[in-house]
Amino acid sequence: MSGPEYSLLDGDVCADERHLAIEDYSSAVPRWCPGCGDHSALGAMQRLLESEQLKREKTVFCSGIGCSSRFPHYLKTYGFHGLHGRALPVATGIKMTRPDLHVFAIMGDGDCCSIGLAHWLHAVRYNVDMVAMLLDNNIYGLTKNQTSPTTPQGHKSNTQQQGSFLPPLNPLTATLGITNCSFVAQTADWVPAHLFQTLKAAFHHQGFAFVRVLQRCPVFTAGIYQDAVRHPDNVELLTHPAGICDPDAEGLYKNHISHDPADLHEARRLAEGGNGKFRLGLFFRDASRPRYNETRALPKYTAEEKIEILNAELDRYAV
């Protein structure tokens, strides 16, 4: 709060002090298909905004293009619904110049892991303070059923009608492999309480908090998460006092893995999966990693001071 961009006028003397309800954070009526996992992610997000009482005018949701990227339109905050794959650069520019804002980036799997891959990788490395949520339905939804980088091998789509040719990209191991990674969690749309707790932990993390949400798309990838939805045995919950604690999920899922989120090595091993089970929880957190928005923060000067500095600069070039 006392970061270099803080102005004395940011003291919220005239701000709306009334308690905001969930409805106060809602905007347009979501246009997602019935049963779409994005509804649940939106609900959890609204709950987060409400429980944290975030100032609506101080909150910005950035997104790319996709079904998932419609997200900002359904929230009564500021938003930037930009280009396919490019939510993160915009979010980075916002947070770097306005550290007083709460910044969220919402992406689809095509958005984040295909066209926006360079930005994803570098955003993890920059570790700019924000929440990045990947709504992973394993398919291109908006453009109607094309293979995405996370589509399971063999899954048929309009572009790969014989079934996806390649093994899917694993967003968790990818993120955990990137230098300066500071927060990686996985949750799922069908466990809203866990989703909420995960978002909450991500919000409170200082740095780039990457949350992958396993998101059902009943229209194009109806089957893919059903094993986990129907049979809680197929889910393994990462639990730890320093991790994400959600009694609901702990009651529902009997398979618990006690995992200390400080352990990057173990996080990578667990993220690898391999036993066909879905692992939910906090894989890794390290709040001590340097944050680019802070590394690059500079003191501010008045117009007159700037002129003084610039005049000194011109002196160097004086004839």
Binding site: V60, P89, V90, T92, G93, T97, A118, H122, K300
Partner: peptide
């Protein structure tokens, strides 16, 4: 010296995106 930041982005697309984000903000 006057509080300005030069951000070397990962590519020109990101550079434009960051600049737009900053302007939006």
């Amino acid at each position: 010296k006057m509080g300005g930041v030069v951000h070397q982005a990962e590519d020109e697309i990101a550079a434009a995106g960051c600049a737009i984000g900053a302007s939006f903000a």
